[in-house]
């Protein structure tokens, strides 16, 4: 696959940046002429990944979150959300639906939503080093969309 375009964003882990991060990802994805549903799916998945970093990677501090977007020549969008925070000791457990260590305002459905709204989800985490979440979604070619 050939990378057609890319974007790199870096934000501090403040919850005000959740909206900014998903909107930026949506703006980048807009080049692929997604449907409204595809766009909402992408925004939601990005929101979940960034929120995870804000809540879990840096619970007491403000740290760095990197959001990278890539567009491949087969109409696939790739989003990578990376932090250098606490890390997840048991990724398999963290990905279980309804599992959360985040307290009352969290539902434990973040990874489940990323998994079902995107085509591919990869989570790599090292305790004390940080977490990298990579998601891919191939967007539909729409009628009249010449590329």
């Amino acid at each position: 696959m050939i990378t057609v375009n890319y974007i790199n964003i870096e934000i501090p882990s403040k919850s005000t940046n959740e909206g900014l991060a998903r909107s930026a990802a949506a703006c980048f994805a807009a080049q692929l002429d997604p449907t409204l549903e595809e766009l909402n799916d992408i925004k939601t998945a990005v929101s979940e990944a960034v929120t995870n970093s804000i809540v879990h990677a840096y619970p007491e501090t403000i740290g760095k979150i990197s959001i990278k977007g890539k567009i491949f020549d087969d109409n696939t969008l790739e989003i990578t959300v990376r932090d250098w925070g606490r890390g997840i000791s048991d990724v398999k457990q963290a990905m279980q639906p309804m599992y959360t260590t985040g307290g009352d305002e969290r539902s434990g459905m973040g990874f489940t939503i990323m998994e079902s709204f995107m085509d591919k989800l990869r989570v790599k985490s090292t305790e004390g080093k940080g977490t990298t979440v990579t998601m891919r979604r191939r967007l539909s070619y729409r009628a009249g969309n010449i590329r």
Binding site: K43, S47, R106, S107, T112
Partner: peptide, 8 residues
């Protein structure tokens, strides 16, 4: 817009 926070 709503993400999993809406569930919580």
């Amino acid at each position: 817009f709503m993400d999993s926070s809406g569930i919580a």
